[in-house]
Amino acid sequence: MRLDAILRIVTKMLIPFMLIFALYVHFHGDFSPGGGFQAGVVIAAAVVFHALVFGLYPTQKIVPPRLVTLMMPAGVIIYAGVGFLTLYLGENFLDYDVLSHNHHPEKPNYHAQERGVLWVEVGVLTTVAGTMISIFYAFAGRGKGEDKTK
C-alpha cells in the first residue's frame, strides 16, 4: 500500500466535481460570474491536479498531448466560424441576431444572442483549456534528465 493513498483517493473524488463545476461556470456564465475563460482554466486545473498526483504519463494517457494541441487552434476556428456563419446568413461579422429562426431585423432576438454567446464561449473555452494544458505538458515533459542524454 502506498503512503499517499488518501491523496490519490481524494483526487479521484474531487476531479469529477471540478469538471462539473467548470461546466456550470461555463453554461451559467450568462446569469452568474463565469464564462469560457474561467471554465477553461478550471478544466486545465483539474488536468494539472491529476498530473501532479498521479504523474505526467498516466495523465497523458487520458488526455493525449495531440488532442490538447489540436484544441488550441480548434477554439479559434470555432470562434471565427461563428463570425463567418453570421456573415454567411447576411448580417455583420459576429452579429448573433440571425442565429435563430425567428429573426426580425428590428427586434432584438434573445435566443439567437444566447446561442451566439454560448458558441463563442465554447471556442474560448477550447482554446484556453488547450493552451493551459499544453503549456503545462511542455514544462512538465522537459525533465532534467534530457541533459544527460546529450
Binding site: 450568462d30 464564462g35 479559434v76 463570425g83 459576429l94 451566439g116 464561449e121
Partner: peptide, 24 residues
C-alpha cells in the same frame, strides 16, 4: 438588447466579440 443579465458576459462575448476573438 441581448437578454443576458450578466453584463460582463454580454459585453465580452456580444458587444465586444471581435475584441475577444483577438484575445483568444
Amino acid at each position: 438588447e441581448t437578454g443576458i443579465p450578466n453584463v460582463v458576459t454580454s459585453v465580452l462575448a456580444s458587444y465586444r466579440g471581435f475584441d475577444t476573438l483577438g484575445e483568444t
